[in-house]
Nucleic acid binder design. Structure first.
Lengths: 231, 231
DNA sequence: CGACAGGTTGACCGTTATCAAAGATCGTGG
DNA sequence: CCACGATCTTTGATAACGGTCAACCTGTCG
């Protein structure tokens, strides 16, 4: 193990495994076993990692960079599903079911990933059932979140969806509520099922009502969180 | 075992276990073991089985009847998430995560369920890891479906969502394409994030365009499936 | 047979998409 | 380090999709 840690230049990519919630409860020895099977990969900005219809054969864990997961609807319009940051993973859905991706994964910036092959992962799932339980928990989370999101689309106006999204991004910084948008407003529009124009207009309106204060392109301050959530 | 099968009046409720995809791959002996832990329950039409905020402690498997799963959004509007028929189950999400339900479950008609207690289920998951894999597969399915639904809400017009829903309900009957709506139009409206009025109007419009033919309240025939999907 | 929930139809209007054009920002390469 | 282009963002004008309210109709079930 000490030997491995010394081997930084070639093995550093494996470190990301220890960031992943579905693995980080394992014993060091088990973790090492998994690290042995991991393959590094890197993608240039804009490069596609997988696309809808592709056969699925790996779990991708983000080591460095950012990945956009998006779907194309029946009529060809794009919807952003999520943004992956280091420690997040993707490709898991297709591993347990149809084997075919329904979404697209694209590197937002130059990105490094670790991949675990389907067959290796299945071996670990059988060997260490606790991993299944962790994935089950992760999936539960995602399902709740996805169904909550669906319900919001079904019942809330765009204005409200924006307000709710802002509320979820709030971070407390010495008493005042700051927001750092995790994506461009264009992507945010796609994520929230609206247009960049509407995002821009609603944020301006929020500002005029004294609810927020925009600072630069991706930052803002929440002045009246309660009122924002009453919208 | 033969003894158990003889005991129909008191044990018939257990039969539903064998309908459930996450259990039906097990050996008869294992299945029996699970059946031993099952508790029957019954709910009158309209009765609430669990509500958002309730502590979760069981998996509910529908034996007979119908259950509506719905959410209330932040602003208090209702969205129908799914309808459970015999063999379907619910309550699984809260078992693996927060322990608290986010949705409501309500009997649509008089309904019989089998419940498996959280602790019993967890025991089985450890004892028979194949169950975890089945649930993982079920969750993958649900996630794909939920994310597909979210993407539709985000990108498709109401008219298109209705058309896509109809297309998913189609059943081939001696060459012609029939549809039996699985719920009232009121519930369908809630499921699709629209209003009964709009559902009614769009179906009438489809009929005027010669795409469908409505027969009674919950039945129709698809005349031009291709054109319907181009909308 | 009556009551009630579900369904339909009409009129109206608000929210939000669309199209267009100008302005800001970022990354890139010279 | 600056300049350029590409992309993102903003603002305006316009239209339409779909929600809301109201009234009426219909089927279903006690």
């Amino acid at each position: 193990m000490a030997e491995k840690r010394a081997c930084n230049h070639s093995c550093a990519h494996q470190a990301c495994i220890s960031l992943v919630p579905i693995f980080n409860h394992l014993e060091p020895a088990q973790m090492d076993e998994i690290m042995q099977t991991v393959q590094p990969g890197s993608y240039k900005k804009g490069e596609v990692i997988y696309r809808a219809g592709d056969q699925s054969d790996s779990l991708y864990i983000v080591n460095k960079g950012k990945i956009r997961i998006y779907r194309l609807s029946e009529s060809g319009k794009e919807q952003l599903v999520r943004i992956l940051n280091p420690g997040n993973f993707t490709g898991e859905l297709a591993l347990f079911q149809e084997n075919v991706h329904e979404a697209y994964a694209e590197a937002v910036v130059d990105t490094e990933v670790c991949t675990i092959k389907r067959s290796d992962l299945q071996e670990f799932l059988i060997k260490y059932p606790s991993i299944s339980l962790k994935i089950l928990s992760e999936f539960s989370n995602r399902l709740e979140k996805s169904e909550r999101q669906t319900a919001r689309f079904a019942t809330e106006r765009v204005e409200t969806r924006i307000a709710l999204f802002l509320a979820e991004c709030v971070e407390d910084q010495d008493g005042s509520l700051h927001i750092q948008l995790p994506m461009s407003k264009k992507d945010l529009a796609s994520y929230l099922g609206t247009t960049p124009e509407t995002i821009s207009r609603r944020l301006t309106a929020f500002e005029e009502q004294g609810l927020i204060k925009q600072v630069g392109q991706r930052k803002m301050e929440i002045l009246k969180l309660d009122d924002l959530l009453l919208i």
